[in-house]
């Protein structure tokens, strides 16, 4: 569960997050939309402890991101448009490295099984620098879930993925949903966001401008509301 209260983040004098209150229940799939510079990625960085809040609190399963950063990081997996992988290491070496960093003991067969899920087992000994953008993103999916996180934070996760990669990611995210994983996804793609999420939030100027359950709004209604909010902003 994610609990955010009166969250403010300033860079210098400029407020990027300007008082967000948000509660994401276990098993929720929250999709966050908004224009460029609205504060979506900053919000994910704050939740994932990459940035510290200027004011307010964020708690993950009761752990405060400021006070208990290690406990928070143990519970989250992050997939962004940057892969966090090392080009000079193979896929196997990358996953072994991150498994050790997360305190997870994985044998070769277990790593192979993870790589098979993202269709990369046949390339596991090749340097990641030789991978295409889509292959790197698929490997990044494996990296993000290697420690079996309870909460998945996704920042434009479909960027750079081809059709096959999109299907792999979508299938995996649906499987995680079935198992009750909590997910927060930032995206510009309204249709994919509506398709994947069970809750939709719009951030404008660092504030929540809309927060809707999927069952309360059709895709067309949501698009119209979103366009209205964009026009008002």
């Amino acid at each position: 569960m994610i609990e955010i209260e009166n969250l403010v983040r300033e860079f210098g004098r400029k407020g990027v997050i300007n008082g967000i209150d948000l509660r994401v229940e276990k098993g929720d799939y929250l999709v966050i939309l908004g224009p460029n510079g609205a504060g979506k990625t900053t919000l994910l960085k704050l939740i994932s402890t990459l940035l510290r809040p200027s004011e307010g609190t964020i708690k993950i399963d009761g752990y405060d991101v400021k006070e208990d950063g290690v406990a928070v990081r143990r519970r989250i997996g992050v997939l962004g448009h940057v892969s966090y992988l090392y080009d000079e290491l193979s896929a196997l070496e990358n996953l072994r490295f991150y498994a050790k960093m997360y305190g997870v003991t994985l044998g070769l067969e277990e790593i192979k099984a993870i790589l098979s899920r993202v269709k990369l087992a046949h390339r596991m000994n090749d340097l990641v620098g030789t991978y295409s953008r889509g292959m790197k993103q698929r490997l990044a999916i494996a990296r993000a879930i290697i420690h079996k996180p309870k909460i998945l934070l996704l920042d434009e996760p479909y960027t750079g993925l081809d059709l096959n990669g999109r299907k792999i990611l979508t299938d995996m995210l649906r499987e995680f949903q079935k198992h009750g994983m909590t997910t927060v996804m930032v995206t510009h793609d309204i249709e994919r966001g509506y398709e994947m999420g069970n809750r939709l939030a719009v951030i404008i100027d660092g504030k929540i401008a809309a927060d809707l359950r999927k069952e309360d709004v059709s895709i067309e209604d949501f698009k119209n509301r979103y366009a209205g909010l964009m026009g008002a902003a």
Partner: peptide
């Protein structure tokens, strides 16, 4: 520059 520093910062250690 490659972003992997954030990967290290996301790991569960101080």
């Amino acid at each position: 520059d490659t972003g992997s520093l954030q990967g290290l910062m996301l790991c569960p250690s101080d």
